[in-house]
Each structure stands twice: as structure tokens, then as C-alpha cells.
Amino acid sequence: MPTMRFYRFAIAALVAFSEATSPALLHQNTARQNVTTSSQRLGLQWLGGNSTLPKVLVLFTGGTISGGSIYGALDDTQYGQLSINGEQIIARNPYLLNHTQLAVSNWTSEDFSTGTNDALVMNMTRFAHDALCSEDSDIDGAIFTHGTNSLEETAFLMDLLVNCGKPIVGIGSMRPWTHLSFDGDANFFDAVMLAASPESRNRGVLVAFNARILSGFWVTKLHSTNPDAFWSTAGGDLGIFINSLPVFFNSPSQPLHKHVFSIDQVSTHSTYPSLPKVDILYAARGFDGKLVLDAHANGADGVVIAGTGNGGIPSGSDEIKEALDQGLQVVVGTRSPYGPSSPARTPSYAKSGFLHVIQARIQLQLAIASGMGMNQTIDLFEGKFRTAIGQEWTPKQ
């Protein structure tokens, strides 16, 4: 794993300082006691000269939005040789600082890749929670840039862990900044306007992409190359951008099946800052149940199976039962892009409901990190769904 190189203020937010013993450290501690806002405490440097404008934190993890190509303005598949940082992206659009104050927090790794590992993303999520949700917060919202390959994973994770009402907006681009039709500048501007808007509060994590506003809970990437790559597996769009300003379709609401986890509790798990290991298996005719046992033997605490149809598993039930008896937690979703994986009348493992298998994996990781057993995980995934369809279930004691 590449060594993480964070800015000084990111490190200051995550590392516990020992008791000061020297005059210099005593002076620093006294200075920290005089800090009045989270911006000052975290060492954020705000760009823009108008202190009355909304403050939007930019969590920068790179991605295609920061990548460029040496192969010319038509290349949108072989890029990555060139890179720009968050401040350079902001400088490309002088209109940004007419509307907001921006501070960049860098969460890239040495190879300037996106935040594609759990440890980096969890640390960034804790930083965002501290910056936005602490009692001394003076920040109105945040955006995070991200590689589109795993943007939906970070959006869903943050949606379940950061819930103080302030907007967090995920964005990226499908084309490099050297392309003749770079989509990143527009997506970035839209995201900042969305994060700064009071209308965005209490809607959970949002995603701004291709002039559309999507829920971070339901969003998934459905196209590998098209600029209109992101859609919702349920619920539909929340709004659109007109003249790069957000226009919502409905008043603020949250998904009915959403469970809010305690970031402090999750952070006490032995795997932190990583999350418990959960693998995804894809079911088809002739599914080999031994793969479930192999995942457990390889250190997995849980497995999510992309089942057929309404969450079916064609074969391998004996091996799955054996794995459950050994303590592995199992969630079964559907390999279909839309529709639910519905509960069984008498469950031995959880069905994912309307959650896509990618989101189901993250929710299972958080459930395990929160100390939930298999029966609690079943209730987590299925409880409200079962109530809605009149199919209640009580586990045997």
C-alpha cells in the first residue's frame, strides 16, 4: 500500500497529542485552547476574500478529475500521466470564489490515486465528521472528489456515518482535464454550489454528476465510459442543475431503510482504520458454495452474494450453512441492477432488500464493526422491509 501523504491539518485532526512537557509544547497547547472554530483547530486555509460567503470544504482524493493525458485532447481511456491538484482545479474556474470560500484537504496517496482503500476513506470520513459536525464547526458543507470506479462506495459509507444535516457532495469526472470536452469543471462547480445551498441540508450525502443531483444512498455507476455514468437503483433523481444552480424536486427526506451508524463505535473495532473484511461473490448456474468457505478461510468476516433474480442461490446451500455455523455473516442481494432481494419467511442469512450488492457490502462491514451478530444483521437489512410487507420475524432465542 502506498504511503499516505496528508496535509498537516489532516494529520493534526487524526493524531492524539501526548502531554506537553517542554515550554514550546506548552505554548502550542495554550494556543490550541484559544481556538474558536473547527477551521482554526484543523488548520484550514480558506481561499476567497469574502468572509461572509459560505465555507465549503474540499476533500480531494484525485481521480479522473485530476488526471491528464499525454496522448492528446481526444484520449479518454489512456490518461493518467499528468495530474493537477485541488487548488489548480479551483483556479480553472474563477467564478467559484465569487460564491463560496473553499479550503482544500488533500487525501491522495503518493501515486496520486483516488481514495480506494478503506483505511484512507475511513480516516477522511472521520475528518469530515469532525469538521462538519463538531460543536465548534463553522463550515457549511463539503465536497469530495473521487475516482468514479468507487465513488458510490465512499458516498454510501459517508452517508451512513456523517449525519448532522450538513451536505456532503461527491463528484468526479469521466474524462481527463486534457480532453476537449472535460466534464470535471462543470461537475466541480455544480458540487460546490450544491454543498453551499441551504436547500441541500438534511438530505444525506449527495452526488452531483452531469447536471443531475443523486442520492448518495442509492447511487451506482451504470456506464463505464459515458459522462452520464451515474444513476439511482431506487428513488430516482433528487433534482437537476439549471445555470449551474441546484433545483430540487422534493423537500428534504431520507431513505426509509437507512440505518445511521455511530462513527465512534465503528472506530473502536480492531480493524480500524480499515473495516472488517467482506468479500463479494457472484452467483450463476453451478455456483460453488465452497467459495464461501474459502472466503472465510482467507480472513473474511462476511460475504455478500450477488444472487440470481430475487436473491436466489442456485446451489451451495450446505457450504453456506457450514460457513454460517463457523461465524461467517452472509448477505444475499441480486445481480440485477434494479429491484429487491426479498426476505425469506424463515431466514438463516440476510437478504439485502433494495441495497445493491456494493452498498450491501459496506453496510455489512459497518454492522460487523458495530458488534452486530447474524440475527441483528438480518434485522438491520430486512426489518423495515418485513414490516412493510407484513412478514415479521423473530429470531429463536
Rank of each mutant, 00 (worst) to 15 (best):
A344M: 14
G302C: 03
A196P: 11
I242Y: 08
D185W: 08
Q359W: 10
L96T: 10
T220A: 14
R126Q: 14
N29V: 14
T3Q: 04
S215M: 03
G327E: 04
P227S: 00
D138C: 07
A103W: 12
L206Q: 00
L102N: 06
D318Q: 15
T220H: 15
A323K: 10
V15I: 12
F9E: 13
L74C: 08
W393M: 09
F241N: 07
K321G: 01
S317K: 15
P347R: 02
T108K: 09
I368F: 06
S348D: 15
D318I: 15
V169E: 01
A16G: 10
G316W: 11
N298G: 07
N187G: 12
G286L: 01
V330E: 03
N106A: 00
S317I: 13
Q363D: 06
R175E: 00
V205L: 14
V207H: 03
E19V: 14
D264W: 11
F6G: 02
L42V: 00
L160H: 10
E152W: 10
V332T: 03
L281H: 05
A306P: 12
Y71I: 08
S348E: 13
D130H: 14
Q363G: 05
V15S: 03
F182Q: 07
S69Y: 07
D301T: 12
D279W: 07
S342G: 08
S341N: 08
H223M: 08
T394R: 12
S370A: 12
Y349I: 04
M122Y: 00
T377W: 00
P340L: 06
Q363F: 13
L206V: 03
L160Y: 04
I240A: 03
T220E: 12
P252F: 01
N250F: 10
G289C: 08
F287L: 11
R212K: 13
N163W: 11
D140V: 12
G86R: 06
S66K: 13
S39P: 09
S232F: 09
R386P: 04
S341P: 12
F112W: 10
S200H: 07
T116W: 04
S197V: 10
L222A: 01
S270Q: 13
L82I: 11
N29M: 15
D75Y: 01
V15E: 04
P198A: 00
S336K: 06
G333N: 05
P54M: 09
S134N: 06
V292A: 03
P340F: 06
D325G: 04
A31I: 11
V278W: 02
F17Q: 13
R203W: 00
T21V: 14
L14D: 01
L25C: 09
T36L: 12
D228C: 02
Q397L: 15
T21E: 10
L26N: 13
V331W: 08
H129M: 05
H269G: 07
S69K: 14
E199P: 11
I362T: 06
S200V: 08
L42Y: 00
G48P: 12
T220I: 14
A295T: 06
P54Y: 05
W107Q: 02
G289D: 02
P255M: 05
T30E: 10
G311Y: 01
T21H: 14
I378E: 01
L355R: 15
R41M: 14
G216N: 00
T233Q: 11
A295W: 07
A195N: 05
H296L: 15
I139W: 08
